[in-house]
Every structure is written in structure tokens, then in C-alpha cells.
Design a protein around this nucleic acid. Structure first.
Lengths: 241, 241
DNA sequence: CTGGGATGGATTGTATACAATAGCTCTGGA
DNA sequence: TCCAGAGCTATTGTATACAATCCATCCCAG
């Protein structure tokens, strides 16, 4: 693995974990000391993080950790929903061979098994997150559009905008089962819509699916404990009281 | 202006003008000779161009100019329409103060004047492009979402996906007046929709508006002469006969 | 004659030295 | 006491030297 990639991964992790606070200036030499690579790959990583949106360039040079308002998080989620909606619609409109839907249906079955349990363990939630991400990636791939896939991947770069961003919040909240059941039904419906070439329906379902995450955000903003389970939550500015 | 920015602008220009052919490997030292800046800013510029999508990284190191299939261009335009549609919908749903619509209406009036002429000169088309871009930027700004604005700016980075990408094609085609009239009507309708807080309508108009560009692409792909007026057309792979 | 491996050149990846600049502090004057 | 300016320091921007790696060519063996 190259030093640049190493620096990128480590820096991203430091930012998302909250070790580097929002607004904090990122001094190159300090990062060099911390990561043990030279300035060149650190700078390269910073440029990429800026593109990802986790870091912003100071007009007079240097970078700072980006802070996100609650509204921006909402917009990021809405944007993700719109892009996934586009992918679902494109897939439905052009039609996909039945065998390409098999892996998606496999995800559905496995998720059924996970959320079928009477009481969900933390491991169950982690398994759900894994399956959920597999489902969303497979869905994106159905559109056969590398350009769109890339744009969606960019949206996922903000972890609180990604499909599983707020799932772990539910692990400590009573409505958990409820919400996962609803999400899973949307998964099932969107596959059906694509199968039947119902483009507009597929698009709307994915948009609504993303709005589940907005509801989670709303719940989590009232619950500091829940927010701790959300990767990157440290970047979200707390509500003004 | 920094060396990095200078390198970025020059390289982007070389790629879009076709001086660097699609698929061509970009050797850093060759670029250094050509641009007169050292490798460091050249490398920084290449990373940014990769994010813009004009250049792709070779798995074993180095970069090459990206080539686009006609289908990818279509997808890029569709994507732009979806994003602008989202911006228009958000603006309509939250409502915008009447005075913020004034600059947009100003654009409408000016465009009316330009396309009102019996016969359009090349200067008229250039003026149209300028006003059209002003209109689209102002519309994007109405959504009050820097996150979305940035995503739309990224879509515009591929010039053939930007709102004025194919306008100049019309300068040498007979349907010109026709198409500009239609586009301008869509401009007018979307402002009206936002004014009336008709979110769904505003969104659909912007999507359809983008599809005008897809039609232009279709026309231009048959006409090498027309393609020469499209910035970045050199990156579009010609149709297989 | 063909295939595989080794060697050399070309090219990218990394580190670091140097230059430029921005921001801060300290001093002097009003 | 407060403001302005100059100088210094800390930090980023740039160039370049060095290391690693990849690719191509050539030679030798089967």
C-alpha cells in the first residue's frame, strides 16, 4: 500500500472518529509526526479529503476539518436518495436480466433472517449493516452506469449520508424492529418495481427509503448517547438550544 | 495565482481542446516541460483532474486522459438534469422571496431579446451561452444548499454535460431558433413553478430541460462539423459505424 | 524458433530542502 | 492606553533529489 493511501485512510479515520475536531486546522507537520509519512503523501491525502468534503481549504492556505449543520446532513441524505432513485429508475427502465436480481433477493432473504429474531443483538445489527450495504451497492450496480456509481460513492463518503449511517442508532432505541421492518419492505418493493420495469415507482421508493435516515437523524439529534453510534457524528454541529 | 492552479487550468484546457487525446498517457515530465512548472504542482493538478473525471489513474501508476462513450455522455446529462431538478424542487418547496427571483427574470428578458432577432449571429449565440449559464447558476443558488451546488458544479465540470455544452452546435444547424425557443419556455416555466411552490413541476421541467441537450448530442453525433463547436467533444468516442 | 528470465532504462512515488507568505507579537508614537 | 507598523516566526507552497517500481528489450536455454 502506498504512503498516500495509508495517509488517506488514517486521516479519514481520525476525522470520522472525532479525534480531529470540526473546525480544527490541520497542520501538515503535526500530521507528519502523527502518521509517520512525509509531507508529500499527507498533502495528496488532504487534497482528496477536500474532494470528499471532509476537509475544507482555508482561503489563505492550509486545511481545516469540515463541520456540518443538521440541515446539511439532511440535504446530503436527500441527495443520496435522489441519486439512488435515479439508479433504480435507470435499471427499471432499461430492464435487467432476472439472474442479476438474484443476489439482491439473496440479501432480502438474509436480512429477513436477521430481523426475524425476537430480540436483536449488537451482532445482529452489525450483520444488518453489512447486508444493507451489500444490497445498496448491488442496486447501484444495476444501473450499469459507472458515472452514476461514482457519484453515489461520493455521497456515501459522508458516512452519515450513507445507507447504513444511522442504523446503529436503532440498536439502543426501542423502535428498532419497527424501522428495520419498514426499510426491508422498501428493499423488497424496489426490487419488485425494477423487475416490473416500473421506473417512477422504483425511483420514489428509493427516495422515501433515504428519508428513513432523515427520521433517524431527527431522533438521534435528541439523544447524545445514540449519536455516539453514528460514525462521523462528531462532525455534526449540535442543535442550538 | 499559485502554480498548482495555473497547472490545473492549463492542463484542463489542453484536455478539453483535444490537444491531449483520450487514452493518452500523461507523463509528468512531459507536462513539466510543456507547462513550465515543477512536478509537484503538476501532480496536484492531476489529482484534481481525476476527481473532476477528465483524467483517470492507471492502476500501475500514472494518469491518462479519459474517454467518454456516447452513453456515458447521455448519463452525465441525465444526472445533471436530476441534480438541477432537485435544486429547483428544494427551492420551490421551501419557497423563495420574490426579490430573489428578480435576477432570474432579468435573464429571461435578456434571453428574449437575444433570440428575438430574425437571424442569430455567432455573437448572439455567445451571448445566449453567457445568459444561459447565469440563469442556471442563479437557479442552483435558490436551493440554498452549498452541498448540492457543489455537486452540480462537479457535473458541469464535464463541459458536454453543462447546460450550455451543446448550444453552439445550433449555431450551424437550421433548427436553432426552434430549440432555443423551447429551452427559453422551460426557463420561464421553471421560474413560475418555483414562484408557485410547485416542487414536482419544477423538478420535472429541469429534467426535461436537460433532455434537450441529449437531443442535441444525438444531432451532433451525426455531424462532425457541429461537434467541433462543442468544448470537450474530442473526449467523446465516435459512433461505431 | 519460441518462451522465460534478467537487466537496464524510463517513470512514478516519496522525502526533504528551500522559498514565499501570512499571521502574530512587540515596540514606538500619538 | 490604543493603534499602527515592522520584523520575526511558523506554516504552507514549490522544486528537486533520491528510491522504488514497472515495462520493454535482449539474451540464453530448451
Amino acid at each position: 500500500m502506498s504512503q498516500t493511501v495509508s495517509a488517506l485512510l488514517q486521516l479519514r479515520d481520525l476525522i470520522l472518529s472525532g479525534d480531529l475536531a470540526p473546525g480544527q486546522r490541520l497542520q501538515e507537520l503535526a500530521i507528519v509526526d502523527r502518521l509517520g509519512v512525509s509531507r508529500t503523501p499527507v498533502r495528496a491525502a488532504l487534497v482528496q479529503l477536500q474532494e470528499e468534503g471532509l476537509v475544507e481549504a482555508n482561503p489563505s492556505g492550509g486545511y481545516a476539518v469540515r463541520a456540518f449543520s443538521e440541515q446539511e446532513v439532511n440535504e446530503a441524505i436527500e441527495l443520496r436518495g435522489v441519486l439512488e432513485g435515479l439508479a433504480a429508475r435507470l435499471a427499471a427502465e432499461k430492464g435487467v436480466e432476472p439472474e442479476r436480481l438474484t443476489p439482491l433477493k439473496g440479501c432480502l432473504t438474509e436480512i429477513d433472517t436477521v430481523i426475524g429474531a425476537a430480540r436483536l443483538t449488537l451482532a445482529d445489527f452489525e450483520r444488518y449493516v453489512e447486508l444493507n450495504e451489500r444490497f445498496h451497492h448491488a442496486l447501484t450496480a444495476l444501473a450499469d452506469s459507472p458515472m452514476l456509481a461514482r457519484q453515489i460513492a461520493r455521497a456515501y463518503a459522508l458516512p452519515f449520508a450513507s445507507p447504513s449511517g444511522f442504523v446503529m442508532v436503532q440498536a439502543i432505541q426501542p423502535q428498532a424492529h419497527h424501522i428495520l421492518t419498514i426499510a426491508q419492505d422498501q428493499h423488497r418493493c424496489v426490487v419488485e418495481a425494477i423487475e416490473n420495469r416500473e421506473g417512477a415507482r422504483a425511483e420514489m421508493i428509493m427516495r422515501e427509503h433515504a428519508r428513513l435516515a432523515r427520521r433517524h437523524l431527527e431522533l438521534a439529534m435528541h439523544d447524545q448517547d445514540a449519536l455516539r453510534h453514528v460514525r462521523g457524528a462528531a462532525l455534526i454541529a449540535p442543535r442550538r438550544a
